[in-house]
């Protein structure tokens, strides 16, 4: 049986304690919440921290609160399952509920947290393999090697950000609070994900993702998340498209964000698609043009469980469907 490498487990009860421990051990420590991603990666030898800081008992990070004036505040330890079932999330941020409900399996959603899903380690078919497998291959840029197996001449790692909720958070323009030994900082979701497969996010090793704040839903808000996968459970996205729009009384689009997940090392905002929607009434031709923008913007590589040609082609299909999801009730 695959087993975890040795480490010291340090459960904490407060964000401050967590930050202090992480600060003390530096890169030798890793925080863990649900563990569904980290422990699997550790069993594959991808991480060998000396100390694992257990966040599960930080009660303050389990809070979820919505009010129409301030929006939604999600403690980082809220389980994906609780988010997927929450009435306020379902009503005001349906794409988030959908994305959370499409992660993994019921067990993974019950163990896994929103903070963990946003900090999900990037994935690649050359990387998410056992130590022996990677050794047989000769390793790769992301871990122990100096060559990206996906793009041989790439100076940076091309692993995929395969979080379902990441593109959605960015579509909703969420703010992410990071707490470190020297205090807190708030980062916009669009700045949180670093477009480098080797480092999924800008979170520093001594920081804790504490809370996610979503702005109140704007007038006439509509949103959707579409996911491409081969099985209806377990699978990470081969592609994800998140769309969030707002409309005025006349039904014209006043705000639009179209995000692509599971293509690059960070969610990709397709600004051209959003620009096409702005001011539009979601006419079929507009949606098709916006989907075309998405198709052009996404550049998948051979690093997931479907060919890049297929994923490229599905960009337009998924985008079209996500756009129709938000347009349909308005037509």
């Amino acid at each position: 049986m695959l087993r975890l490498p040795a480490f010291e487990f340090r459960p904490v009860r407060s964000v401050e304690d967590a930050a202090a421990l992480l600060s003390e051990y530096g890169s030798d420590a890793l925080p863990v919440a649900g563990g569904t991603d980290l422990y699997a990666n550790m069993k594959l030898g991808l991480f060998t921290p000396r100390v694992v800081v257990g966040l599960r008992s930080i009660a303050e990070l389990r809070r979820m609160h919505f009010d129409p004036a301030h929006g939604l505040r999600l403690g980082a330890l809220c389980s994906l399952d609780s988010i997927a079932r929450d009435p306020a999330v379902l009503l005001h941020y349906p794409a988030l509920a959908t994305a959370a409900a499409m992660v993994g399996t019921p067990e993974i959603r019950s163990m896994g947290t929103i903070g963990g899903n946003l900090c999900l380690e990037t994935r690649c078919t050359y990387y998410n393999q056992s130590a022996d497998w990677r050794k047989a291959l000769g390793y790769c840029l992301k871990r122990d090697g100096d060559l990206c197996r996906v793009a041989l001449h790439s100076p940076t790692c091309k692993a995929i950000n395969a979080s379902d909720t990441a593109p959605v958070m960015q579509a909703y323009d969420a703010r992410i609070s990071l707490v470190g030994p020297h205090g807190a900082r708030v980062v916009a979701a669009r700045d949180f994900f670093s477009n480098d497969g080797a480092h999924a996010t800008v979170r520093q090793s001594d920081e804790i993702l504490a809370e996610i704040a979503l702005p109140p839903p704007p007038r006439g808000a509509r949103s959707s998340y579409r996911k491409l996968r081969l099985r209806n459970a377990f699978d990470f996205p081969l592609l994800g498209v998140a769309v969030a729009v707002a409309t005025n009384e006349a039904g014209a689009c006043t705000q639009a964000r179209v995000l692509l997940g599971a293509v690059g090392s960070a969610p990709i905002e397709v600004e051209g698609a959003g620009a096409l929607l702005l001011g539009s009434h979601f006419a079929a031709a507009t949606l098709a043009d916006a989907a075309e923008e998405v198709f052009r913007a996404g550049k998948p590589l051979e690093n997931a469980n479907a060919s890049l040609l297929y994923r490229k082609r599905m960009l337009r299909v998924l985008a079209q469907r996500a756009l129709e999801d938000v347009a349909a009730p308005l037509r």
Partner: peptide, 26 residues
Amino acid sequence: MEESAFRDDLHRIPNLLDYKTPTMLD
């Protein structure tokens, strides 16, 4: 969906996440 897939002399998907066996929902 099930297939033994190889790349670079290696079994490409030697695990139950990537080797696809149908779930209850499939």
